[in-house]
Amino acid sequence: MSMRKLLVPLIALLVFLLLWEALVWFNDWPNYKMASPSDLLPAYQRYWGLFLTMGWQTLWRTVVGLLLAVVVGVLLGMVMGFSRTMRDALYPLLVGFNAVPKATVVPIVALLFVGAHDFNTILIAFMISFFPIAVSVSIGLSTLEPEYRDILRSLGASRFTIFRKIALPKTLPEFFGALKVAVTLAFIGTNLMEIVSPHGRGLGALFDSGKTNSDYPLMFAVLIALAFLGIVLYYVVVALENIFAGWAERAQD
């Protein structure tokens, strides 16, 4: 069973790489049009030190931005989930904020806090990823059936006890669903800033330097490295979900 679980995605990955290689091969595309997987290996070999340091910079800033998004998103979600007035007040604001393309916010933030590169990157990662968390927590809390509350309230439980024993655990599946979306969004945010901002750091900056030096295989290698980091972080969230909200998964065969 676990063998199968590992083999199936590995085979899918291999098929994908082969198709990509074949596509470039048959069209006889040059490197600058589209690099093939076989071009990536030399790129990784040449720059592996850079990939490690830049990859780490991208990773930690994404994680910090994401943690910030979790804290703020959960707090906003709680406020909107418990108070109708706050929900009516904040919802349009949040939707509007979310509708603004973050690529347009990046230069503004870069100018606003010029030089504060780590801060700017974390800020964009946070701004792009807190929305789904806030919405899912608020929906989870506001759709709690009144009977759940009555069961504890009729015994004299305080609001906080009801939140801790019922509302919080009941919202966890929605929260983790949103967190999976937020993880990938946060990576997009981090890289937007890394690419745009001057004297940047992280994989985004490496991508940018590939562009300036016409090193196309390097650019593709960065994309694959980003995808890899995204997958790793995504499955960290899945592992956390299994620990804290595994009960929500239907029992399978």
Partner: peptide, 15 residues
């Protein structure tokens, strides 16, 4: 606390 309640929906905590 001397009251117990049960509803049409059993509202058991799934976790």
């Amino acid at each position: 606390a001397t009251v117990g309640m049960a509803f049409q929906n059993p509202v058991l905590l799934e976790w």
